[in-house]
């Protein structure tokens, strides 16, 4: 396990060596996809994004999630143009399974961490968009590691799920402290979490 953590760290650090700032409009957008409902919302959110600016998209998807793979094609088809056809689907092992023992949960979390670190260092996104699946906590933490190590400052935009009316999800509670912009879709949440921005009818 320590071996895997060390590899992730080396991977993240090595990214520093060959990173060059992306110029002009060519930005890499990292989108974290999870299961069912989160993905359905993300598909809708993506319609607000200009793909001619974010010319490359990196989708981080859980290996166990077959639906998301189809939905990525669905997101991409209507939005891509001649200039913005590049997208990458990075699959990572599931971070947490229902009914897993603590030890095996820890091992899967580390495997997920290593795979996510590898993806982030290979594609070095300019910005991360996530909306609450378990994976996004791991992505946010790694983005913070990159920031602390001085490799690259990648802003995180978190949109809490439409399904969350009165309380944040567990990943939302963590992302609240890590994200640069934290958006909620119901006004009651903004009263509880003052740093959150309230924007209704996004999805």
């Amino acid at each position: 396990m320590f071996y895997l953590i060390t590899i992730s760290l080396i991977a993240l650090l090595s990214a520093r060596l060959y990173w060059e700032p992306s110029t002009g409009g060519n930005k890499v957008l990292c989108v974290v996809l999870g299961s069912g409902g989160h993905t359905a919302e993300m598909v809708r959110l993506m319609h607000g994004i200009d793909f001619e600016r974010y010319t490359k998209r990196l989708y981080i998807v859980s290996e166990s999630d077959a639906l998301s793979a189809n939905q990525i094609a669905e997101i991409e088809r209507p939005l891509m143009s001649d200039y913005s056809q590049e997208y990458v689907v990075g699959r990572v092992p599931r971070s947490r399974q229902v009914g897993q023992s603590l030890v095996s949960a820890l091992i899967s979390a580390v495997r997920c961490l290593a795979a996510t670190a590898w993806l982030l260092q290979s594609h070095l996104p300019d910005i991360v968009l996530c909306n609450g699946p378990g994976n996004c906590v791991i992505v946010c933490v790694l983005v913070m590691v990159l920031r602390v190590l001085g490799v690259k400052r990648i802003p995180i935009v978190h949109v809490e799920s439409f399904a969350r009316v009165r309380s944040l999800s567990l990943s939302g509670k963590i992302a609240y402290y890590l994200a640069d912009r934290f958006i909620v879709q119901w006004s009651g949440l903004q009263q509880k979490y003052p740093r959150a921005e309230y924007i209704p009818n996004l999805v």
């Binding site: 957008l29 959110l45 607000g48 994004i49 968009l129 958006i183 924007i199």
Partner: peptide
């Protein structure tokens, strides 16, 4: 209207 997300990015 998902446009505000694009603007925030």
């Amino acid at each position: 209207d998902p446009q505000p997300i694009g603007e925030i990015l």
